[in-house]
Amino acid sequence: MQYINLFCFCAAAAVSTKASATDPFEDFHSYGDLPDDEIHQQHQGELLYGDVEFGLSLHQGNTKNTSFKLKSNLYQDLTHWRNQFKFDGLYRREKNTDTGDEDVSAARYFTSGQANYKLGDEKASFFVYGDFEKDRFNGKEYTATFALGYGNRVFEGRKNTVDIDIGPGFSVSKIDDEEVLAEGEERTQTGSLVRFAMQWQRIVSKRTRFNQDVSYERSLSGLNSRLFAESSLVTQVIGGVALKFGFTYRYNSKPEADKEKVDTELGATLVYSFN
């Protein structure tokens, strides 16, 4: 069996539109040294900065498997607003070399945007949040969420910071056309919810950082509630090269028929700073 694993390049970079920025990726070298607040201060007023992650996995043998992953986390830090944009995409195609059957086994795309209006000392904010998810294999054609509320930093220490957001919102989802509806069930569903999000960041060492992101959307209309949690550890190896370990947990309280409530993803990626 020939096994090729290219899992893979991840660019963690600052993308700047300032004329004085000579290298949009050079700030990765400060990843383990600076807390997020100082990183935001360095890029205040810039159009976009953040990180972009790319992963590719190829497997050849009795089964041919190709996986592609693209993930980004971009920011804008303006005088009164701090905006965050996320994208997370996964695509996997498999082929049985004995039968010749080929099919897509994963196709998920998630994007979100959040605008935080800074209040007082800038630790507190008023936020507006929206996301859109399309997963070919969860029984929904799409799911969209909108929420607004209050955010604040609830803990700040020498190595740890904890930020939370909480507020009301609503969701819109459409059941896939191939799914059979129960009696009285509508294909497009809307309902109110409460959204809670937490970001915990811990500086483990000079070159290593641990991040824990959690978001929970509790339905108030009897629809499905969603939980998303991502744990990641990034450690700089040498120069612009770092190694990232990540674990993602997704929970849906009321999945469609024959679908699982829990979906997990575990991966290790190589992070490289392009200089």
Score class of each variant (00 low, 15 high):
144 A>V: 02
144 A>R: 01
148 L>I: 03
150 Y>M: 03
151 G>N: 07
152 N>C: 13
155 F>D: 10
156 E>C: 04
156 E>L: 11
159 K>A: 12
160 N>Y: 05
161 T>S: 15
164 I>L: 15
165 D>T: 14
165 D>H: 15
167 G>E: 13
167 G>C: 11
168 P>A: 10
168 P>M: 10
169 G>Q: 12
172 V>A: 09
172 V>F: 14
173 S>I: 00
174 K>R: 15
177 D>P: 02
177 D>H: 13
178 E>I: 05
178 E>A: 01
180 V>H: 05
182 A>G: 13
183 E>C: 06
184 G>R: 11
188 T>L: 05
189 Q>N: 02
189 Q>A: 02
191 G>A: 04
193 L>Y: 04
194 V>I: 13
198 M>G: 14
201 Q>P: 07
204 V>P: 00
205 S>R: 00
205 S>V: 00
207 R>N: 06
207 R>S: 02
209 R>Y: 01
209 R>S: 04
210 F>I: 01
213 D>A: 09
214 V>Y: 09
214 V>W: 06
216 Y>G: 00
217 E>A: 08
217 E>Q: 12
220 L>S: 11
220 L>D: 07
220 L>C: 10
222 G>R: 04
223 L>N: 10
223 L>W: 04
223 L>M: 13
224 N>K: 14
225 S>Q: 07
226 R>F: 05
227 L>S: 12
227 L>P: 02
230 E>N: 14
231 S>R: 05
232 S>L: 04
234 V>D: 13
235 T>Q: 13
236 Q>V: 12
237 V>H: 00
238 I>F: 13
241 V>S: 14
